[in-house]
Design a protein around this nucleic acid. Structure first.
Lengths: 119, 119
DNA sequence: CGCGTAATTTAGATGAAACTAAAATACAAA
DNA sequence: TTTGTATTTTAGTTTCATCTAAATTACGCG
């Protein structure tokens, strides 16, 4: 499972993480979210909510004239899984490297390209 | 353990992830990395390597006239752990609040205020 | 030293992201 | 229907990231 670009890009913004924090435990209307961030306009919040929704990190429920947003926590699972897979792979490689160093006498298989690359 | 903005931003770029993948298992010189990505110039690769190094995701070793880069795989552990903890950690709010406050006081606090909003 | 290779850095162009103000849309109630 | 509230969307601006091309630094070797 590759790292999902859209999710990472959405998470890379502190502003969007702040919104995600607000709707993490319980749903909030767009107005409530904006009320918690008075330093930007309502329109800016709406655009960020659109971005977060597009990335699949939040979902929206309509009731009356309100729109209630809440985090889709399960959307973080692929990212966490991919990162952990890389991390586990790192541990595996470190152990393998130690084992190889202990008994290094055979030719190394992956070290082909050494000489000229372009002409 | 806040979500590190720099690391997420570095990971959010497919180009940088491709570089990271190349230097994940074994170190590569900057020239080798560029040879694997012929669609951009050497300078662009060097800038991305600088970005990755600044985010702590790769490290550099100098030998002769070469610079060998390799992934700092342990740098992914904090991100994976932070994402993992977001599921059930009720204290995430406090952590993110501290992170945002620091970010607002940091070297790049916020945009220049141009227009005035309604009062 | 001077030359060639490896890589970084600079300056400038381009496009995307994020914001604002204002207009547009959606819906409830009078 | 009209009015008011809630929210989105549009148009324009600013900021930021990324790229190219060229200049520059660093280093090894004759």
């Amino acid at each position: 499972m590759p790292l999902p670009t859209a999710t990472l890009a959405a998470l890379a913004s502190p502003r969007r993480r702040e919104i995600l924090r607000l709707v993490w435990q319980r749903e909030c209307s767009a107005g409530e979210i904006h009320a918690a961030m008075p330093d930007v306009t309502f329109g800016a919040i709406s655009l960020q909510l659109k971005s977060l929704t597009g990335a699949g990190l939040v979902e929206c429920r309509r009731a009356k004239q309100f729109r209630y947003y809440r985090a889709r926590r399960d959307a973080l699972a692929p990212v966490a899984a991919a990162l952990e897979h890389m991390w586990n792979d790192a541990l595996w490689n470190l152990k393998l490297a130690a084992e190889l160093e202990e008994s290094r006498r055979g030719p190394r298989p992956q070290r082909r390209r050494r000489g000229k690359r372009k002409d």
